[in-house]
């Protein structure tokens, strides 16, 4: 029972991070039908940006309050990562939009390799670490075989995720940009014929997806404390799995998919084998694609004749 509760907490924390990344995949796929393979590396890049900003603020500028530094890093990280995503979309994807279907996909793979190698060259091959922060832990049960703990980090991760998702949901549902975004997703050319600037809407979609991935990156570096230039790939593919599980194109699906993948992974690691936790996560990808290709919330393509 204690193990179950503890893994539930851990799984939801990890799942929040996956969910934030998954939204970027699902939104981009929804609007231009492309799997943005570089998205995982944008996430990794944002974790490095967060790491550098944290160190700069706390060690160079001598900011004493870690919480204050965290808030600055969060917003500055979102802004810088969004800028990266904006430039990537301009350089590597926009010109290929009218081209054959595989072209932007290949370009995205190239961009993924470019980003991880760029960080490798600039930051070196070894793990970079952040001094531990927010180390307080709440003890939820006492006296059993095992103490169930909830760390301040975990509370932060889940609450930051929840607040951002609420804000994001508001943008998509209630603002003019959100409406244009949904219109482009359903029929981009028609949206253009109603005066919606589709290119700009797509740019903004990349920017918002990257901003959420940046939040995931900041939370990831705070949670785990280390990051490596190769660390974009596996979380990226897992978030992609989450997007597929939730139904590609569905925003609630991406979040739920992220949580499920996080839970499956942590429970698998606890009850079976932590060596095989990735196998469990990716088996979900295979099973979903075979038995439920449109995912949990996906819209099956039904043509009314």
């Amino acid at each position: 029972m204690e193990i179950f509760l503890q893994q539930l907490i851990n799984g939801v924390t990890l799942g929040s991070i996956y969910g934030l990344i998954a939204i970027g995949y699902t939104m981009v796929f929804g609007i231009i039908g492309m799997v943005n393979f570089a998205h995982g590396d944008v996430f990794m890049l944002s974790a490095f940006i967060a790491l550098i900003l944290f160190l700069a603020l706390t060690q160079l500028l001598g900011v004493a309050s870690v919480a204050f530094a965290f808030v600055i890093v969060l917003f500055a990280g979102m802004a810088l990562t969004s800028l990266w995503a904006f430039v990537i979309e301009r350089i590597a994807y926009r010109r290929l939009r009218g081209s054959f279907r595989l072209a932007p996909l290949i370009s995205a793979i190239g961009m993924s390799i470019f980003l991880s190698n760029l960080v490798y060259v600039l930051q070196g091959p070894r793990n970079k670490a952040l001094p531990p922060m927010f180390n307080d832990v709440l003890r939820l049960t006492d006296g059993g075989a095992y103490d169930v703990t909830l760390s301040v980090k975990q509370i932060m991760i889940v609450s930051v995720t929840a607040v951002l998702l609420a804000g994001f949901w508001f943008i998509v549902q209630k603002t003019s940009f959100g409406r244009a975004q949904r219109a482009c997703e359903q029929d981009g050319r028609m949206a253009a014929l109603l005066g919606v600037d589709v290119d700009r809407t797509i740019s903004l979609t990349f920017v918002i997806g990257a901003a959420l991935a940046a939040v995931a990156g900041v939370l990831y570096i705070v949670y785990y404390g280390v990051i490596n230039s190769g660390d974009g790939f596996v979380p990226g593919v897992k978030a992609f799995t989450a997007a597929v599980l939730g139904g590609v194109g569905s925003l609630p699906g991406a979040v739920l998919g992220g949580l499920l993948i996080g839970l499956v992974e942590t429970f698998w690691a606890a009850y079976f084998s932590s060596d095989y936790k990735d196998v469990a996560a990716f088996s979900i990808l295979v099973v979903t694609l075979i038995f439920m290709p449109s995912g949990l919330f996906g819209r099956p393509d039904v043509e009314k004749v």
Partner: peptide
């Protein structure tokens, strides 16, 4: 016909006013 089928009737007309709205 090319409507935004998943949106409401009203939303279809509001998307059409995107430029005035922003």
């Amino acid at each position: 016909i090319r409507l935004f089928r998943g949106m409401t009737v009203l939303e279809n007309l509001i998307v059409a006013q995107h430029n005035r709205l922003i």
